[in-house]
Design a protein around this nucleic acid. Structure first.
Length: 308
DNA sequence: CGTATTTGACCAGG
DNA sequence: CCTGGTCAAATACG
């Protein structure tokens, strides 16, 4: 198995072990059944992730054992790279609108809508947005927004990519506090916060057009996660991925990124087996986010010289 | 008049 | 062939 994958699996197993210990402690001190259930869920998820990592790794090895193949494959991927790489979404956040506010919350960035699509399994269409500064600054951040099925005042927002754009100078009114940036949100996820403003107010009847996003300036509400303390172990992951991803020398660096790609895809998809209100997946998504920056970064983007 | 949104067409992947 | 994601022309907005 690949080194990176082993690390990931190891991290998951280690985490599962820790959780089992915790569960044992809970049982010994006959704590609440809820806490126990939460732990059990966590553990199962860990094991599930590990299992899928292992099976995916095995499959991958069987499919492309030789390097020539991967060269060919890479070539092909370059042709249809767009879909391939962009089909991966990174972080998911549930946002409710504030009282009296229609539409999703302002997250501190300016977005331009580039599409809307009726989704088969959803009653409400999905809106597609990309950063306004895509052209001016090559900012690749995107998001997709969908009104929740059960609670119309809640929006499921899925982010992809990291903002590389600078905050608009003009938009900074003198003395105004900086708005929360996406990175901050992600960091919050990392530290175990969850973003969920659901149920603040649902007085808003459906707007005439069932689905509209008049942007309204509104602060995000953060609530400390009530889930497990120290809910995620970053150790194995950071050694395997965070450092390379954050090291500039590894940009466009080579096949290891290719390999890392499916690792993360797998992880993220596996992470969705967790209750989506749980902060774990945000941690995962955070990692994916930083990697995606590498994979999706256009070579002509500002701030990075083209490769020779 | 420049910028943002809307919306049907188009395309890739499954 | 179906679906989700993106493009781009037309349109609306400030």
């Amino acid at each position: 198995m690949e080194i990176g994958t082993s690390n990931l699996v190891l991290a998951e197993l280690t985490r599962a072990t820790e959780l089992v210990k915790k569960l044992q402690a809970h049982i010994d001190s006959n704590c609440s059944a809820d806490a126990g259930r939460a732990l059990t869920k966590e553990i199962l998820c860990c094991l599930d992730k590990s299992a899928s990592m292992v099976s995916e790794s095995a499959r991958s090895l069987a499919e492309s054992p030789r390097s020539e193949d991967s060269v060919v494959r890479k070539d092909r991927e370059n042709k249809c790279k767009k879909r391939k790489t962009q089909a991966k979404w990174t972080s998911k956040v549930r946002l409710g609108s504030g009282p009296g506010v229609e539409g999703p919350l302002e997250d501190g960035y300016s977005w331009r809508k580039y599409g809307q699509k009726e989704i088969l399994a959803a009653t409400h269409p999905r809106g597609y947005f990309r950063c306004t500064h895509l052209k001016s600054q090559g900012c690749l951040a995107m998001k997709q927004v969908q009104r929740s099925e059960d609670n119309p005042s809640v929006f499921d927002v899925t982010y992809r990519g990291t903002h590389t754009c600078q905050p608009k100078p003009a938009a900074r009114a003198a003395g105004a506090a900086p708005q929360p940036r996406n990175q901050d949100l992600l960091l919050s996820f990392q530290t175990g916060l969850k973003v969920k403003t659901e149920g603040l107010d649902s007085k808003s009847p459906e707007p005439a057009s069932d689905f509209s996003f008049p942007s309204a300036p509104e602060a995000l509400t953060f609530s400390p996660s009530s889930t497990l303390d120290g809910c995620f172990v970053l150790g194995g992951f950071s050694s395997a991925f965070i450092s390379p991803a954050s090291s500039e020398s590894n940009y466009f660096g080579g096949q290891n990124l290719q390999a890392a790609e499916w690792d993360f895809t797998e992880i993220v998809s596996a992470a969705t087996c967790a209750d989506h209100t749980h902060s774990t997946m945000f941690d995962m998504d955070f990692l994916q986010n930083s990697l995606d920056l590498d994979l999706d970064f256009p070579f002509d983007a500002y701030s990075f010289p083209p490769i020779n």
